[in-house]
Nucleic acid binder design. Structure first.
Length: 517
RNA sequence: GUCCCCGUAGCUUAAUGGAUAAAGUAGGUCUCUUCUAAGGACUUGAUGCAGGUCCGAUUCCUGCCGGGGACACCA
């Protein structure tokens, strides 16, 4: 529709011989100002003439064209347009909203990234919710998507955890007790070298146990990974890459191997072990060896933004094409009103604790609890910190996942009830007289998905769905849906279209959409 | 100290350089109860400060103030 309007305006400008053709067509902020508007007339004199010419050439999908404000031209869509769009939504069903903007692309999305031997905390929960939603948005844009999980199964954190069997204890001792620090470093080296049978046994058991526990959480959250990568693997690959490039990209300094980019960073430490940076370099290559992606997205916390920048700088010198394909998507921190969490001080809040806590507020309904949490994470721009309000997350009114799930379930039940009474929907019924707000929102869904896809922005979808649910409630409060008049048949079509759009929207976000609640 | 991110209504958040800055909550005044555990109408209320570019700035630029993060062998 937008394109049609742009063409219409271009055509009109051409026929009037106007040279400067810069203008935008968009939805106005207020539905009262029409369904589309353009700023094309602001710059020109003879505004009325321009509008008259445009109105002359319009199709019957446009009802009214008018001049407003400082020179905006507003377009109002016709009833005919809304009838057609309802029909299209119902016909396309679960495919309504998909687009082919990324057709042919192969995208790998890395997210969640918990570490064996450590807790799966609410930061991982946040990464998971965002990564899953981004993966789905990209799938809806026509790309093939592979989900990857990158886990730190070697490194100092493991040694700290194995030192006395507890990460918090080890972490504290490492900072405070020089003797413990030496012991932990020793353990770290042994793990890399796999030289101590007793330690290997403890390590393997602990790792297996952690990974099993993580799988249970993924299942609850609704994520299924295609690939699992481990630092024990990428560390070796990364070390080799770095060593091969000493003198070219990297240099030796104080016994370590460093990269001097916009900041100097250590890639191999003075013990000869790879750091995070070298591992991530290895990770990029390893991923590409396993799956020839055209785009690689890495979802992590904000705090490693600067580190990742350096890794990309080094990568662009060694594997320029991979660096070019890699996009870092850093997200903010999930805070609880009690203060920020920290894994170092030991007062972590685990994902399961949070889920179970929310679940007690939803009468034990897990899909509702998961939906409430995911919604709170996805409702705002990625990158900003989130203050998780427990009460608000399960509120049945307004800005919450429950509100959306509830509206969807209710539409479903209304439709079932009508059907059981033998009523049918009809998008062509003649009785309808006025266009409702909900009709003006429903047809926009594909545009919202496109925008979310272009910007990796799940919050575009949550915002839209919330507005849609509110307009559905409004519609439902004012109009009789169950009845045998042509009006009711048309209204039932609106209910059905709403149900489809809401379900698809929740699906893209990875939020459960139960038919009954 | 240097670099990066963020400052919007009492609170949590929106806004490819566009119209009167948008929602939800909380507050105030009415109203409904049809099909879930649901509402509806009206109302109060905001761009940290100071400049600059522009017909037009929450958005771009400069400075300041405030908060967070990162600054070589953690991830």
């Amino acid at each position: 529709m937008k394109e049609k309007l742009e063409n219409l305006i271009k055509k009109t400008l051409n026929s009037l011989g106007i040279e400067d053709k810069r203008f935008v067509v968009e939805h106005p902020t207020d539905l009262k100002m029409g369904d589309y508007s353009t700023n094309v007339a602001i710059k020109y004199g003879h505004k009325e003439e321009l509008v008259r010419y445009i109105a002359l050439n319009k199709s019957d999908e446009i009802g009214k064209v008018e001049l407003a404000g400082p020179g905006f031209i507003n377009f109002y869509l016709s009833k005919e347009f809304f009838r057609k769009s309802l029909g299209e939504i119902i016909e396309k069903g679960e495919n309504f909203g998909k687009n082919q903007n990324l057709k042919g692309e192969k995208t790998m999305v890395e997210y969640t990234d918990p570490n064996p031997f450590k807790e799966f905390h609410i930061g991982h929960l946040m990464s998971n919710a965002i990564g899953e939603a981004v993966s789905r948005i990209i799938e809806w844009s026509g790309s093939e998507v592979k989900r990857a999980n990158y886990e730190g199964d070697v490194g100092l954190h493991i040694a700290k955890a194995l030192w006395k069997g507890n990460y918090t204890l080890g972490s504290r001792a490492y900072d405070e007790d020089p003797q413990a620090k030496i012991e932990i470093q020793e353990i770290n080296k042994k793990i890399y070298e796999q030289s101590d049978p007793e330690l290997n046994r403890r390590y393997e058991n602990g790792k297996k146990e952690s990974l099993q526990k993580f799988e249970e959480i993924y299942k609850r959250l609704g994520t299924k990974f295609d690939y699992y990568f481990f630092e024990s693997e990428t560390g070796k690959i990364g070390t080799k890459i770095v060593e091969e490039n000493i003198g070219k990209v990297f240099e030796k300094s104080e016994g370590a191997v460093v990269f001097k980019g916009s900041h100097t960073r250590v890639f191999i430490n003075s013990q000869g072990l790879p750091t995070y940076e070298a591992k991530d370099l290895g990770n990029a290559k390893n991923k590409y060896d396993k799956y020839q992606y055209t785009k690689s997205i890495v979802v992590t916390g904000n705090e490693i933004k600067d580190y990742f920048k350096i890794v990309l700088e080094a990568m662009s010198q060694i594997f320029p094409e991979l660096a070019h394909k890699t996009k870092h998507l850093p997200h903010g921190m999930l805070r609880l009103p009690t203060g920020k969490m920290s894994s170092r001080t030991g007062d972590v809040i685990t994902a399961e604790e949070l889920i179970d806590e929310v679940k007690t507020k939803t009468k034990g309904n897990e899909p509702v609890a998961i939906g409430a949490i995911k919604y709170m994470i996805l409702r705002q721009a990625i990158g900003n910190d989130i203050v998780f309000d427990l009460e608000k997350s399960v509120s049945t009114e307004g800005d919450s996942g429950v509100y959306l799930q509830y509206a969807h379930a209710r539409a479903n039940s209304v439709f079932e009830k009508a059907t059981s009474q033998g009523l049918t929907l009809n998008t062509n019924s003649q009785g309808q007289t006025l266009t409702r707000e909900i009709e003006k929102l429903l047809y926009r869904f594909p545009e919202i998905v496109e925008r979310a896809g272009a910007e990796y922005a799940p919050h575009c979808i949550t915002t839209y769905l919330t507005e849609l649910a509110a307009s559905f409630n409004n519609f439902y409060a004012h109009e009789q849906v169950i009845g045998d008049s042509p009006e009711s048949a048309y209204r039932l079509a609106i209910v059905q279209a709403f149900k489809i759009v809401m379900k698809n929207g929740l699906n893209i976000l990875g939020i459960p959409a139960p038919e009954r609640m």
